[in-house]
Amino acid sequence: MTATTGLQVTDLHTTFGSKSRAVHAVRGVTLHVGAGETFVLLGESGSGKSVTARSILRLYGDTAHLGGRVTLGDTELTALSPKAMRSVRGRCIGLVPQDPTAALDPLRTIGSQLVEVLQVHGMQRSKLDARGRARELLELVGIPDPPRVFAARPHELSGGMRQRAVIALAVACEPELLIADEPTTALDVTVQALVLELFLDLQRRTGMALLLVTHDVGVAEELGGRIGVMYAGRLVETGATREVLAEPRHPYTRGLLDSLPRPGIPRGELPVIGGRPPMTGEVEAGCAFAPRCPRAVSSCRETAPELADLGAGRAAACPVVNPVPALTSAVSA
């Protein structure tokens, strides 16, 4: 994988805390998101999906120890000084966090926040140009009444509008990469669809790479692109989103999909993965999923399997690489 465009993450490790109490949250993640591509990081809480996204942005500063390499285009982000990294954030990488209210200054208008971003990163010299561009951006993210929103403060907007304003901020400097961390989780179901569509639309127009973090299979399905399923700090399965969700190869992906309620399953008989997901950094020897895995063999408890190529752009970190059959009670569907 020698790519000069887009985001390349190679063997990323993120560790929090001191040596004696280290919490190893991300344990060797390798992924590539080309320009104009979408990559969905799917995982449950504690899987390390958000930590991966934030580590790419180096948002943890001194609180985390990072290992591995992250490059964006020709720039090696992991080698940049903190100061240089600051200008990369926002300029080359946009971030859309989960909670739009925390990302906006509650006291200032959306317009002035957009203008500031444009001027700080040198996109627009004059205030007048910046204002014009800010209005265009609001229009770009599908805000129906840009002048009103331009002059509005965050609390005057609905959740969906706020999230759009945050997206406008994130894409203001035409970043090469947009990282969205659970961008629709705080939104109502019927509004989620609109925001996801907006991401795809923006991507088509600007050709940026999109890395979207979610726990929601529905969101992943909607977005398409490629997917990486994370469990206990590792990628356990990658491939084209629709293919992975239609025919998962890793027992965890299978179990996760089976546990979603859907019509035809009698009440109380949802197929479940036993046990619970490990907490951040809580990992024993061998495959982290082995204690919950219905197909685990003795070797699973000794060595953690690496992602193995299955052809057709698919990979899974499981010695059982054949398609995993659905759990028994799901067959009745």
């Binding site: 805390g17 919490v23 949250a25 930590v51 600051r86 971003v117 700080v120 950094g281």
Partner: peptide, 20 residues
């Protein structure tokens, strides 16, 4: 954008803190 990004890590403490 600087506001946005600088504010973010403060809003989300490292999950490790919780685990610990």
């Amino acid at each position: 954008m600087t506001d946005l990004l600088v504010a973010s890590p403060a809003a989300a403490p490292p999950p490790a803190a919780d685990a610990m």
